[in-house]
Design a protein around this nucleic acid. Sequence first.
RNA 1: GCGGGGGUUGCCGAGCUUGGUCAAAGGCGGUGGACUCAAGAUCCACUCCCGCAGGGGUUCAGGGGUUCAAAUCCCCUCCCCCGCACCA
Length: 961
Amino acid sequence: MIDFKAIEEKWQKKWLEEKIFEPKIDEREKFYITVAFPYLSGHLHVGHARTYTIPDVIARFKRMQGYNVLFPMAWHITGSPIVGIAERIKNRDSKTIWIYRDVYKVPEDILWTFEDPKNIVKYFMKTARETFIKAGFSVDWSREFHTTSLFPPFSKFIEWQFWTLKKKGLVVKGAHRVRWDPVVGTPLGDHDIMEGEDIPILEYVLIKFILMENGEEIYLPAATLRPETVYGVTNMWLNPEATYVKAKIRSKGKEEVWIISREAAYKLSFQDKEIEVIEEFKGEKLIGKWVKNPVTGDEIIILPAEFVDPDNATGVVMSVPAHAPFDHVAIEDLKKETEVLLKYDIDPRIVGEISYISLIELEGYGEFPAVEEVEKLGVKSQKDKEKLEQATKNIYKAEFHKGIFKIEPYKGKPVQEVKDLIAKDMKDRGKADMMYEFAEKPVISRFGNQAVVKIIHDQWFIDYGNPEWKEKAREALARMKIYPESRRAQFEAVIDWLDKKACARKIGLGTPLPWDKEWVIESLSDSTIYMAYYTISRHMNRLREEGKLDSEKLTREFFDYLFLEEFSEKREKELEEKTGIPAETIHEMKEEFEYWYPLDWRCSAKDLIPNHLTFFIFNHVAIFRKEHWPKGIAVNGFGTLEGTKMSKSKGNVLNFIDAIEENGADVVRLYIMSLAEHDSDFDWRRKEVGKLKKQLERFYELISEFAQYEEKDVELMDIDKWLLHRLNRAIEGATKALEEFRTRTAVQWAFYSILNDLRWYMRRTEGRDDEAKRTTLRKLAEIWVRLMAPFTPHTCEELWEKLGGEGFVSLAKWPEPDPEWWNESIELEEDYIKNLIEDIKEIISVARLENARRAYIYTAKEWKWKVAQVVAEKRDFKASMSEVMKDPEMRKRGKEVSKLIQKLIKDRAFDFKRIDEEKALKQAKDFIESEIGLEIIINPDEDKGGKKRQAMPMKPAVYIE
RNA sequence: GCGGGGGUUGCCGAGCUUGGUCAAAGGCGGUGGACUCAAGAUCCACUCCCGCAGGGGUUCAGGGGUUCAAAUCCCCUCCCCCGCACCA
């Protein structure tokens, strides 16, 4: 057994000691790659491992190619989840404790310190760093930092970023709707919601129907998602059993009196409305009264309906029976229940005479689509709720997409358009208002309270909706490389779609907004340009360690100079005065920024495209000069575990660190890199990992063995040359794949393809043990180890040492194809032999020739090769024929030639490459014989079985007896 | 609803950008064989259907089209996944 663990520790120690991954500026070309730093609310699992392994592999590859590579790492602790965890630990929440104690295996004595969020951060920062070191990541740890005010120099950097954005008018104040816990008084993110986190918020239009009471206008705001149907209202619905209120509504300096459900009054009080309830009463009080449609002026009656939910929007509903199944059915029901009407003193004739108003032309339906749909689905009464809902859905969808409006002044326009026009018009003229409401209920906060929709003011936004900014972001994207390229469309869509993004909140860890300290910059907003901070972070850390850094003095002008201005000795002197940092150091920082920027690659998992990665583009173009705009983004997919989604709350995770402990870092790295390409997801399977481990052991053993060989200057045999040629191919394939972040293909070339070729080579050279073979294998070993080094760096360091390589393999030169090794005809010959063996085997099995003794092989005659060459050039029967027939020798066998050309054309054998078949056969004779267990006779004079003429170039005729 | 991406042979998953060399890589699973006292590991062969001579047939969600030629290009239909924000 190979002790991978010892090997890994040995090299990790050496790398750290010799600081080989801590680059300084030098004359080499730079390569700067970063990955989205992890949020430390727990351990990283093998799904995350992919995100971090890819850039490490690329960094290692580029380093070997001779670039000066910077690959830094930091930690993200901004936001509320960590605070929330601390809270739940403090409350002894059993699930949280289970996750941290049993899934993340946090020692008990440390677990209880998690009541303080700082300890969570401390613990996971330490373990994450250990994990990354154990994974063999070639990170420059001298630049490590973390976010929030707990790390003042970075916090100052974020303050600078926000001042800069604000100065450019990109941070603005405004109102915004949020889900809100009315008891605790806090906005609710997805993580803060216990039930109903998927429920969307709808925007209802409230159409203010007019009720005259003692000469005074009172409004009944009917809530609707289809404002265009205001033209088809025949009556109004109220729930007679529900409690309604009459209330003074003050909004935007105006005061009106509304009648709405009691629940609505409560909910509207969170939506910019001041509400003063005058009286409370049952809905029945209003049944039978008449109200005026504010748009058409029609007088309509208020009728009772049990389907009206007082807890949905205003609890006031307008009735459009021609286009709303619920309304139609309710009217039909009422027609049958005259006693109900009499109870409210309503003349049943009024209901009987309600005439439907058709508004929308809909293909496939007549005048009243709702009526038809109700009949079609067989709805009997209001009790058929499910069917009614289905009918409503069908009609709504059909009318919205295909409906044409029939009423002036919107006649002939699609409903889709009219809808917004009418809503806007009503609002502008004060005839309508609006209200936010959950599409479904309940929505319960994690504190156990029923959530409401609140409009909050004084909210700070980053204005991603700014058109000029968008334009710049588009330009930057167009100049960037995106891997995989197929994701570009999504980036474009996100840039178009992004609008004002709330950038600060009142809870959680973070950097306070510098001009409004009660707000804390939220986590997606403080992580957009920190790649620039890495460039100066080494110096910051050093100054900090030496106690020479007063973060309070890191002013805006300091960062302005480093990141935005030209070099200036004078400025450096001034800043030395102001910051206490030596001018020389300031100069070095600026040099580093100018050297490393722009960022070459940003890596992340695909889930960050709609937010972080796009914000990253936006913020860079807003703040930095064009030459510092980022150059590329590479996104990767997730991972599943034995076919199921990883989820920490279900405990279905494999921690990255546990996977490493169990299998070794190199195995985990190689496995993850080989599983999936780009942004497709991979599936972690224990069994396969075990298999890979064995293969890696084999790799180790093979190279160890080859390391004992010496390279000599000897004549190589064809099969040796074949292996070297194949090696060239592998080098080329792996290099090209890595350039495009295609790790899976790269592993296939760098590992599996060589492994397979080697297997074939060993088979072909069985029994040979000469200097040529040893030399070949030794050459292979030296290249193979380097090709594998980005994937399995520890193992390769160890093997590199065995091979007597200079220094670290991590810094060794990436192999390039040797021009002298290219040899396509040898490859073709080898394929030729392989195909022949397969053919013979097939013949034996199909013809059931188990007792055969000999195989006669006939290669194609010279003239056939000539014909093939002509056909390959002409690719056309006539042209080939006339060309060939110029040769009198050919004319003698005209018929045969014509047949051959026909066949070649049919087979589209246009890829003409000449090999010496007989030579290849002779060299491989012993091998073929041992493979098929028959005696081989090459090109005998006797035409056995009349097969001779079947021989084609690259496909010899065979006769077996 | 809006936006992004997919449907490939038992399973996973390449290939589709630049139509032919695609019955379609690789892995897993399965079958047979070598090795072994045996198991494991390893290696070899086969793994859509048919075939007593290296061949033929039917496939790449479904339907239609372009082309000498389509898994690959175009159109339509069906189905699936992901995002929609103040949340990491």
